[in-house]
C-alpha cells in the first residue's frame, strides 16, 4: 500500500464520520434531505462502478431497488430486519447475474434496451402476482427512524467506496478499463470480458437492492408503482454522469447539486421534472462530457500546461 492510498483512506474515513454527524443537528428537513442524498450517492456510485469503465448504460437501478424494497416488504413480518439486507443483496445480485449473462455478451444497445424495460416488467409481474393472490400492497411497520435509515445508508456508502477503491486497484478494475476502451483488444490479451462485466454488474445490482431494502421502512406502505419508479434509474444515470465516472468520488459531486435542483424543481414546477431530466441529459452530452470530473481535469491540464509554458 502506497502513502497516497493511506491518506486517501484517511480522508475518506474522516468525511464519512463527518457525514454521520448530520443527525446531531436534529433538523428534520436536513436529515430527510440527507437520506435522499445518501441514497443517491450509494446508487450513483455503485452504478458508476460498472457503467463508468465499460460505458454500458444500465437503466436497471429501479428494478433492483424495487426488488430490494419488496424483500423488506415481504420479509419484515417473518424475519428479523437485519437478515433482510443480506437477502436483498443476494436477490439483487442474482437478478443482475441473470440479466448480465443474457445481455452483456452483446452490444451496449441491447443492454440499455433490456435494462430500460426491466423495472417495468418486474412491476407488471409483481402487480399481476399480487392481483392473483389478492393483496394490493404491503405495510412495512418498524420502529426505524430517519436517523437509523440515514446511518445505514452512510455506512453502505462507506462500504461502496471501499469496494470501488479495492476494485480500482485490482486486476478486475484494470480489465474493465481495457474492456471499456476496446473489447476486442481485451479478449486478445486474455480477458474474460463477459465474466468481468457480469461481476461488476452483480455488485451494482446487489447494492441497489440493499438500498431499496433500507429505504422500504420510510415508505411504510409499499405498492408496485412506488417501488418501481423508472424515474429513479434515469436520475441515477444523470447524477453519476453529471459528476463524472472517471473518479470514484465523481458521482458524489453530481448527486448533491442535482438532488437540490430536483427538489427545487419538483416542489415549484412538479410537472416539469421530465423536461428537466431531458435537458440534463442533453447538457451532459453537449456541455459537460466527462462531467464535473472531466471539467476539473481539463482545467487542471490547461493550467499545468500554462505553467509549463511560463
Amino acid at each position: 500500500m502506497k502513502r497516497g492510498d493511506l491518506s486517501n483512506l484517511a480522508w475518506g474515513a474522516a468525511l464519512l464520520v463527518l457525514a454521520a454527524l448530520l443527525p446531531l443537528t436534529g433538523d428534520g428537513y436536513l436529515i430527510s434531505l440527507g437520506v435522499t442524498i445518501a441514497m443517491y450517492t450509494v446508487l450513483a456510485t455503485s452504478w458508476a462502478l460498472f457503467s463508468g469503465p465499460t460505458h454500458y448504460i444500465s437503466l436497471a437501478t429501479a428494478a433492483f431497488f424495487g426488488v430490494g424494497t419488496y424483500v423488506t416488504g415481504a420479509g419484515i413480518d417473518h424475519l428479523p430486519y437485519w437478515t433482510l439486507l443480506p437477502i436483498a443483496a443476494v436477490v439483487g445480485g442474482v437478478l443482475a447475474a441473470l440479466v448480465g449473462l443474457a445481455t452483456l455478451r452483446l452490444s451496449g444497445v441491447y443492454f440499455v434496451i433490456f435494462t430500460l424495460g426491466l423495472a417495468e416488467m418486474t412491476r407488471q409481474v409483481v402487480t399481476w402476482y399480487q392481483n392473483k393472490t389478492g393483496h394490493k400492497g404491503t405495510y412495512v411497520l418498524t420502529d426505524l427512524t430517519d436517523n437509523d435509515i440515514y446511518w445505514q445508508l452512510v455506512a453502505l456508502a462507506g462500504l461502496v467506496f471501499l469496494i470501488g477503491w479495492a476494485v480500482g486497484r485490482s486486476r478486475l478494475g484494470f480489465a474493465l478499463r481495457i474492456i471499456g476502451d476496446d473489447e476486442d483488444v481485451a479478449r486478445h490479451v486474455g480477458i474474460n470480458t463477459a465474466l468481468s462485466k457480469v461481476a461488476l454488474f452483480i455488485v451494482s445490482g446487489a447494492v441497489a437492492a440493499v438500498v431499496g431494502a433500507i429505504i422500504a421502512p420510510r415508505y411504510v406502505y409499499i405498492e408496485p408503482s412506488t417501488a418501481f419508479t423508472p424515474m429513479l434509474s434515469f436520475q441515477v444515470v444523470i447524477m453519476a454522469l453529471l459528476g463524472g465516472t472517471g473518479r470514484l468520488w465523481g458521482p458524489l459531486v453530481g448527486v448533491i447539486p442535482f438532488t437540490l435542483l430536483w427538489e427545487a424543481i419538483s416542489s415549484s414546477f412538479p410537472n416539469q421534472t421530465t423536461l428537466l431530466l431531458g435537458l440534463s441529459f442533453l447538457a451532459i452530452v453537449y456541455l459537460l462530457p466527462g462531467g464535473f470530473v472531466g471539467l476539473w481535469d481539463r482545467v487542471k491540464h490547461r493550467s499545468a500546461r500554462r505553467r509549463a509554458l511560463a
Partner: peptide, 18 residues
C-alpha cells in the same frame, strides 16, 4: 453509442416534457 443513447433519451424526455 453512449452519447447517442443519452442524447436521444434526453430528446425523448424534452419532447414528453413539452
Amino acid at each position: 453509442e453512449q452519447d447517442a443513447i443519452l442524447t436521444t433519451f434526453g430528446l425523448s424526455f424534452v419532447m414528453v416534457g413539452l
